[in-house]
Design a binder for these strands. Sequence first.
DNA 1: TATGAATGAGGCTTCATTCAT
DNA 2: TATGAATGAAGCCTCATTCAT
Lengths: 211, 211, 211, 211
Amino acid sequence: MRKLDPARHDQKRQEILSAARRCFERSGLKGASIAHICKEAGISPGHLYHYFKSKDAIVATLSEAWLDNISRRFEQLPIEEGGVVASLVEEISQLVPSGPNARSQLVFEMLAESTRNAGMAKLVQAHSRRLRSILANVLRQGQQRGAIDPALDPETTATIMIAMIDGLKALPLRDPEADRRAVADMLQQTLAAMLKRDRAEKTGEISGRRR
Amino acid sequence: MRKLDPARHDQKRQEILSAARRCFERSGLKGASIAHICKEAGISPGHLYHYFKSKDAIVATLSEAWLDNISRRFEQLPIEEGGVVASLVEEISQLVPSGPNARSQLVFEMLAESTRNAGMAKLVQAHSRRLRSILANVLRQGQQRGAIDPALDPETTATIMIAMIDGLKALPLRDPEADRRAVADMLQQTLAAMLKRDRAEKTGEISGRRR
Amino acid sequence: MRKLDPARHDQKRQEILSAARRCFERSGLKGASIAHICKEAGISPGHLYHYFKSKDAIVATLSEAWLDNISRRFEQLPIEEGGVVASLVEEISQLVPSGPNARSQLVFEMLAESTRNAGMAKLVQAHSRRLRSILANVLRQGQQRGAIDPALDPETTATIMIAMIDGLKALPLRDPEADRRAVADMLQQTLAAMLKRDRAEKTGEISGRRR
Amino acid sequence: MRKLDPARHDQKRQEILSAARRCFERSGLKGASIAHICKEAGISPGHLYHYFKSKDAIVATLSEAWLDNISRRFEQLPIEEGGVVASLVEEISQLVPSGPNARSQLVFEMLAESTRNAGMAKLVQAHSRRLRSILANVLRQGQQRGAIDPALDPETTATIMIAMIDGLKALPLRDPEADRRAVADMLQQTLAAMLKRDRAEKTGEISGRRR
DNA sequence: TATGAATGAGGCTTCATTCAT
DNA sequence: TATGAATGAAGCCTCATTCAT
């Protein structure tokens, strides 16, 4: 009965979430147990349920925070004059994970979980919409500035960029020894080529255009 | 009376694998229990262990078969005159999954599992090497025929293509309503642009070149 | 509200151990299941694991306590003037078990288990060393007082005494109808003769002497 | 439908028993499974049940054979003139086991099992009676020849000797590093002193005498 | 005689969650 | 707010045994 300080409550929540994240990264969404999380957080199992009503709630909260964080990074993309392509490309390139990145695997688990868990599906799809919207906006602004091929459909292009981002997360799992520098460089080129103004003139593409 | 048909044994194994696959697709690698699989296969829990020594063995066998199947599809790519790019591009485009494709999610679970399970890691990495090698070979042949930019490093290019393949699997989970046709078309263009012979002349790329 | 009595925890542990002991005595180390123990202790299977991390841990704890108890009994042997032989002999005689002594059988199971279980082997051997050391000390003091043949090697003699103790535990299993009184009496004589001061003069023994 | 040769049948039985013995020595009476035994014997589980109606039957048969073998060894004790004591003592001394004698542990398991298993109890007790009878007979003959103290009760003496035999089997489990030579020597002396003709004159024993 | 497919109960252990304090 | 006692279902796996061939 010390303090009912709501700020304190929130801080504890964050601590638990942080412990949970470490556990999930270590053992997976199903592999990490409430007991593990409690030990990591230094609290008792009973106490944890004062902050979260179920394990699923923890997973959901954490997933939301995680996805939100990704979105925010793209939201803060500088869209300066002439640099739209460059900064976008740069941002994606930096995603080429370094090391047996424990964080990326969680996204794969979220994606898989979204197949069976309606709540997770909602979360994942909302995030995807938001992310696509952010990227599409950046693309649109680039098109207005003439830096990006105006024939591209921003939504479709954004969708493909997201696919690339996802796929790159598998890289360190598929090939821990990969030359990430080479991949990053080539990725930059590919993206640049894809977005490039004059690309349209060179290929007789049929679709992917603004509808 | 002697040999009770070793083929019979193998067939039962396949039946169990098939049942397991359905369960895994439905509930995930961890979510599907031995009991579920046995019920689906119509056998008793004890009996399953005449065919597989552990759940992990089932997962491994299934994963291997699954990954092997993917590799084989790419191995059989027709590399006819002038169609290297086209057939490769076509093949990848067809991967854009249709419907809440339960199969793709398993790949994500395998990737995540490979973080914690040495056996799975070995499997995933071997598959990745093989797939990259197959794709790189196709690319090399295309380069010899002059259909593909000779400045591209086949291995790096293959790595990026695999990332795209992976990323596309997330598409129906991220956006079940996506216009797959549009995505497939744009993807084709992007790939074509990436591989195109004269691409190099147009962009001042720095790396990703043949080492 | 803080500490919910660590003594309470310990008491419960003891209760569980006690229930486990009864089960082991009834059904043997392997024959008694966790379910049996839980039922006997009046707790749920899951709860048992708050107190012991495995069945083996229960067995080990119980074995240790059991062996420890035996050692302590010998440690407390009164070594008064002139009574060394008598009290030692008396103590051993009392070991001739009475009734289908369920406790003794457990020692046999521990001994057998020590063949396959490294932890049990360690326990058994440590106990044996301790017990031998205790007995050897008593013997040495007896030798200093002139009550025990100084030519005897205390360690070897102790080893043989332990063998006798072990062997006597089999008596009620081998012959539930045995005249224990007669056996105890004769045992006393045999031990007395073995330890007796002037024994050496009567037999042309070759070894077993102080090294 | 080849041969119903009963000799062949018996040989197979022996092979299975032999395999079972190895398994039991390795893993214990409960630890060794029918599957293990079948693998060791190179036969199928179903086939085993043509030779033995249950695992218990195998255990019983094996135990009987084992105990029988011990009895036979003592039955064949040479009772030559003047050597009764010597040969008896020698025989027992040789029992001091050498090495982590896997065989002895089984006797302990049989003894423990006899507490819960009526069949085993019968077996063990019958064996004990027989062994005691054999030893008592040897002792009686020694008494007739004047080599053994006539005041000793042969049955009680035999009982104590059996206890010693049992106890010695624990020696290598209790102390794998023990100096077996010293133990054997001292044991010889102790037994000799116990049986010796003139022993009675030296100690004022009260019991253990012929009733 | 011989196989190995098949069973289902039961082994130990872990789990998410609730409750009394 | 905080603990940890307590639950019981469910997890994976092994077992002795039986049956069809």
